[in-house]
Design a protein around this nucleic acid. Structure first.
Lengths: 201, 201
DNA sequence: CGGACATGTTACCGGTGTAAACATTATTCC
DNA sequence: GGAATAATGTTTACACCGGTAACATGTCCG
């Protein structure tokens, strides 16, 4: 913030060659776009266009399109974590919380289809709930989910049991979410309940 | 088959303007391609190229790219049905057959990732196991799966129970398949067993 | 034969992701 | 302060894509 010429700072706000914070703007526009369009309609050029910038400007901030999408995923996981926390908060611990999480998982996928797809399509993304072996990894949201699942079995359950249960729970909600996203199963709340609630696993 | 000039019929076999059975050739090349490439790498032009034909020739046999992919799906479901039949045949009826089907589902997905994705991405495709309501529909393979599931519960089980169980079973194996395809879960046979075998549903 | 028709072709359009060269602005050092 | 330098945009260009229109070639049937 030098003294320079503050009129520029006031009158401009536009038409300035340098954007200021293009990276964030691109991510923001990307997120706006992805919630209203199928995932394959998300073009680098379109995002740049909405940010009011030339297509190749993107490459100053991301090595390629995949990297930009990766940034979107990151924000996606943050949102998912929030949804999980909310679901967790509004349910008493135990099976109820567990079911609430399952519903939250499917609900999030249905609410943000393209973003969810993108998140899951990133093999090296922050999802990676370590189903067996490997500790640590996993995004915020996923860690919450894992904890909820593990809590179900109690801390004295064998590791294998917890891991298998975790994988089964994840597969169940993920499968339902995907089937509904792909239109193979109608996205009716009753069906979500039917699948989630009955889960003793 | 007129008498015309049979030397042509012999010597040609190539360089003939008319392909003979381009439609089948396109489907075949498409299936070859889809098993060795990610689903988004499946371009109409590439398929036409492999069939030794110009890109626009495709439009004489399919209204657009989606229709060509639809044809691939059809063949995919035929193959899946075969896999199910084989799994069914090599297992005694009951829970065993049911688990074998589940394993076959995931195994098929892992063996033909792009084709499986394509099949599931067709909302109006022949998959559509009618989870609740609506009878009839469903592809060959899916019908076999449905029968196996229903068999588990016995014919006297309430419709709701059978339908819910069906949906849960489908979600479970579908979710596992997807997570493995997307690299979120390692595609280890032991994990497939862990998920499928424990399923009392 | 000769036309009707099916099935190929080439030419073109607007769209995409991305690399290279150039332009402008911000920063840093004397 | 002013010049060198780095950071950040722009323009241009390329190869690919799906799709339309107009043209060419082959087959078939009266």
């Amino acid at each position: 913030m030098s003294e320079k010429d503050n009129t520029v700072n006031i009158t401009s706000e536009k038409n300035r060659y340098h954007h200021g914070d293009l990276r964030s703007a691109l991510v923001e526009e990307g997120l706006k776009l992805i919630d209203t369009a199928p995932v394959d309609a998300l073009s680098l050029r379109e995002i740049a266009r909405r940010a009011g910038v030339s297509a190749t400007a993107v490459y100053r901030h991301f090595p390629d399109k995949a990297a930009l999408l990766g940034a979107l995923c990151l924000e996606g996981h943050a949102r998912m974590a929030k949804a999980f926390e909310a679901a967790m908060a509004s349910a008493s611990p135990g099976v109820e919380a567990f079911n609430a999480m399952g519903r939250a998982y499917v609900t999030f996928a249905l609410a943000h289809p393209s973003l969810f797809r993108l998140m899951m399509a990133q093999p090296d993304g922050p999802v990676a709930v370590p189903p067996p072996s490997a500790g640590g990894g996993g995004s915020d949201g996923m860690q919450i989910l894992v904890n909820a699942i593990d809590g179900l079995f109690g801390p004295d359950a064998p590791v294998q049991v917890r891991e298998a249960g975790r994988l089964r729970a994840w597969s169940l909600v993920h499968g339902l979410a995907m089937l509904m996203l792909d239109g193979q199963v109608p996205a009716e709340p009753a069906l979500i309940d039917a699948v989630v609630d009955a889960s003793v696993l």
